[in-house]
């Protein structure tokens, strides 16, 4: 058995976990909640700095109860990017400190690929087209020739960010996604809004603005509904195009926005119509979590993919298609 500790902290959620090949041994999280507005990068980083010690101590206590000591760990993994620079640096520091003090190798994990791999771990998906949707990221990925390639992505902001911006303009509190979903269920009619797919890429910032403007003549329920219909149809369309282009027959949904039931329903319908299988992991593996970092860390460690502390700088723009996949 291999045991790896992973730390996630690219944005709002600070989370550390220990996993082995089969399952999560334990996970401890502490979530930054802004008092007003959205995520403030400096405050989020301060939150992570303040709570990292306590989260990791608690994790060590919990695994000790299960008979595992910090000496038994094989490696320390952390989210190297993409994410908010200040948050990444804070978590990177914690991981380096652990690696040096416990004398365990360090593994730098790409956050997006951790979402993908935890999905492949916890669902029957083998070689899927992945729709990864969160606050900052919106991508359609699939494996080919040694790398996860990006088949389509947002040209401006992530879908979660677009939902949050619109929700804030509509007077709803952060995070806006779940509230938009709730309002959408009470809608009476569809309001036309922009639908922007360029080739395999999509764009959400114009949709967010147009939806805000539409609030002046339509009910918040109708606008929330129409926003979701347009935004999700754009994502599903590109996912379907990636299926057609790659010839794959599985779709995996990843990322926090994947909690949205309407998005799941649309993907499921599309997959049914193409005879493709559709997989969604348990909710605790969809949003940012330490287990996914620990798990990809484990795969990378076992394939010899570790880094020296001196070369372990974080990268806020760390692209998943720049990672050589050593573990498949």
């Amino acid at each position: 058995m291999t045991l790896v500790l992973g730390i996630e902290g690219t944005a709002w959620n600070l989370s550390a976990a220990v996993v082995d090949e089969n399952d999560v041994i334990d996970e401890v999280s502490h979530t930054y909640r802004p008092s007003t507005g959205g995520i403030h990068p400096r405050e989020a980083a301060q939150h992570h700095a303040q709570h990292a010690g306590q989260v990791i101590r608690k994790l060590f206590e919990n695994i000790a109860d299960k008979g595992i000591s910090s000496r038994d760990l094989d490696a320390i993994a952390f989210s190297q990017g993409p994410g908010l620079g200040a948050c990444l640096r804070t978590v990177g520091t914690a991981a380096r400190a652990l690696s040096l003090s416990l004398e365990k190798p360090l593994v730098g994990v790409n956050h997006c690929l951790a979402h993908v791999e935890v999905g492949r771990w916890k669902t029957p998906a083998e070689d899927p087209v992945v729709l990864y949707v969160s606050g900052g990221n919106s991508q359609v990925l699939a494996y080919r020739n040694g790398k996860y390639r990006i088949f389509g992505e947002t040209l401006d902001i992530g879908i979660g960010n677009a939902l949050d911006k619109f929700a804030r303009n509509a007077g709803l509190s952060h995070p806006g996604g779940p509230k938009v979903e709730e309002f959408a269920q009470a809608a009476a009619s569809y309001v036309p809004l922009p639908y922007v797919v360029k080739g395999m890429d999509f764009s959400f910032s114009g949709l967010s603005t147009a939806a805000t403007d539409a609030l002046s003549h339509s009910s918040i329920e109708d606008v929330c509904y129409s926003f979701q219909e347009n935004a999700f149809a754009m994502l599903v369309e590109v996912t379907e195009r990636a299926l057609a282009h790659t010839g794959k027959n599985e779709v995996l949904l990843a990322g926090g926005v994947g909690a949205n039931m309407r998005l799941r329903q649309m993907l499921k319908t599309m997959c049914e119509d193409r005879d493709a299988s559709f997989y969604v992991p348990e909710k605790r593996f969809m949003g940012d979590n330490g287990s996914m970092i620990a798990y990809l860390g484990l795969l990378m460690y076992k394939s010899g993919n570790t880094i020296e502390v001196a070369n372990s700088h974080v990268d806020p723009d760390f692209r998943p298609d720049s990672v050589e996949v050593t573990w498949l």
Binding site: N230, E237, M266, M270
Partner: peptide, 28 residues
């Protein structure tokens, strides 16, 4: 299978018909 349309070939012509997507609201 293409993503957007059914493409049939009849003699020397291509007939491209955009098919409805059940996942999209009808008006859109």
């Amino acid at each position: 299978k293409g993503a957007e349309a059914i493409v049939r070939i009849q003699d020397d012509r291509v007939i491209k018909q955009r098919i409805p997507k059940r996942y999209r609201v009808e008006m859109l």
